[in-house]
Design a binder for these strands. Structure first.
Lengths: 253, 253
DNA sequence: GATCATAGTCGTCTGCCTGACGATAAACAG
DNA sequence: CTGTTTATCGTCAGGCAGACGACTATGATC
């Protein structure tokens, strides 16, 4: 081995979070405003340093709770209300990605239902849900309103784009879309999740046939709701199945 | 922000490599024997420290070249003979994964054709291609021969298992299986790659129909070969398509 | 050289799934 | 009561995959 173990270069290790939800028929990500240089005043993904005795997943779950109050959905754990799906996304370590020092960031992806107030520990104006389209359009200079027509800090646009792409592809072959829904939801609400994440319109009849016909995907709870207007719809919970086989097909292939 | 940027905990960052190939109809991974504690004498995945000014992908490509002589296939680059596919796999950062210090390892996955001699810079007995089944069976105590019936060092069994799972699922919906083949190959050779990676038998007729019917997957070179015995087979190169739609279906779902 | 074993290649048939879309049902708004 | 909205059930045609028969072209063996 041609290296000296006592002379390894020191790194800072952080976790950054791509927290996605569906609000008002649009896929939104959590953004925080930076209060200090570099990129002061710019929007960024939430994140922070990994502590000395902390696992990466633990650090991500801690940051998620600090920023949103959401608890990570423990894969083997108990049923927590408002639990979010949390998984590792990818790691970004370009030597110049942080001008201050060498920082390696382990990005994580979190999917959460649309919660009332996404508020953070600090002041309310420093954190918000922003449509991902808007956050990513900033990269190409086409922001909506003047104030936010600024790219995300660091390489966070790239990280966000990777997270969105992961979510888009993963709801194809897994039941992960239910992570965007409340505990009980209707087929129509689930369909609107797919439509918002993929940015397409789906046929309600074929979608209904597909999701109700996939064993283990949806479990009827017996109740109905009319919160979407129209004819009352059956309520469902997410079933035990995590992999969809055959998958949902994204149109416009 | 509740942290002091000048007081972040220091980490060592390494890259570990899951290098896979298909040899003698079996999926094999590159393993190196550790020459020093901890886990001295045990088999481990190749890897090493990321240098101070080095990108993660660059570090992985450097380690790959050092251990195997393989060059990473530059996605936008020139045609390099014996180029391997290289992609980031996942990052492992359990505080106790290395007893010496806090090490975060960014694992990468490399897929390479079956090359004549996989030898490393050091002595030949310290590096080998081992069937992944054998390396992972060690975890449960069912090793083949006495000498190697020992688990991999660190958490490398977990990393290897994750890499194998990534490869198994990725050849379903991408043309990545061609990374296991030489520049020119036959449909039968490609089928044996799928059979080795998935550990199943595929119908040669349906497989042939599927791969030759997918636009952009295979490009005939005009030549034929009889190196597999039997009737001469057409030779193909990998086409430009990277995503297979609809995907190859893994039996026994 | 005839025969056999081995691989490769082309077709056929059937069942399942999907996309397109008609029709009905059950609520609410005017 | 009528129109609007959403949910849900059905029908039909096309495409693709699995099962499998048939034929082809080489090398090996007697």
């Amino acid at each position: 081995m041609p290296y000296d173990p006592s002379a390894f270069p020191p790194f800072a290790v952080t976790v950054d979070l791509v927290v996605l939800t569906v609000r008002r028929h649009a896929l939104c990500a959590l953004a925080v405003r930076r209060g200090e240089p570099p990129f002061q005043g710019r929007w960024a993904l939430p994140g922070g340093f990994v502590r000395a005795d902390e696992d990466l997943t633990t650090a991500a779950a801690r940051e998620l709770a600090e920023e949103t109050g959401l608890h990570a959905h423990d894969p083997a754990g108990s049923v927590v209300p408002n639990a979010a799906h949390l998984e590792q996304l990818a790691t970004y370590g370009d030597p110049k990605r942080d001008p201050r020092m060498r920082v390696v960031s382990v990005a994580h992806l979190a999917l959460a239902p649309d919660l009332p107030a996404p508020r953070a520990g600090g002041d309310a104006r420093s954190v918000r849900w922003a449509p991902v389209e808007e956050l990513l359009d900033q990269e190409t200079g086409y922001g909506r309103d003047g104030e936010q027509a600024v790219p995300l800090a660091f390489d966070h646009a790239r990280i966000l784009a990777d997270g969105v792409e992961r979510a888009r592809s993963k709801i194809e072959y897994s039941s992960l879309a239910t992570a965007f829904c409340p505990q009980e939801f209707t087929v129509g609400e689930l369909r609107r999740v797919y439509e918002a994440v993929w940015g397409v319109a789906l046929d309600p009849r074929n979608f209904h046939r597909k999701v109700t016909g996939t064993p283990g995907f949806l479990v009827p709870t017996g109740g109905t709701t009319t919160r979407q207007g129209g004819r009352p719809a059956q309520l469902f919970r997410a079933g035990g199945a995590t992999l969809l086989n055959p998958p949902m097909l994204r149109p416009e292939a």
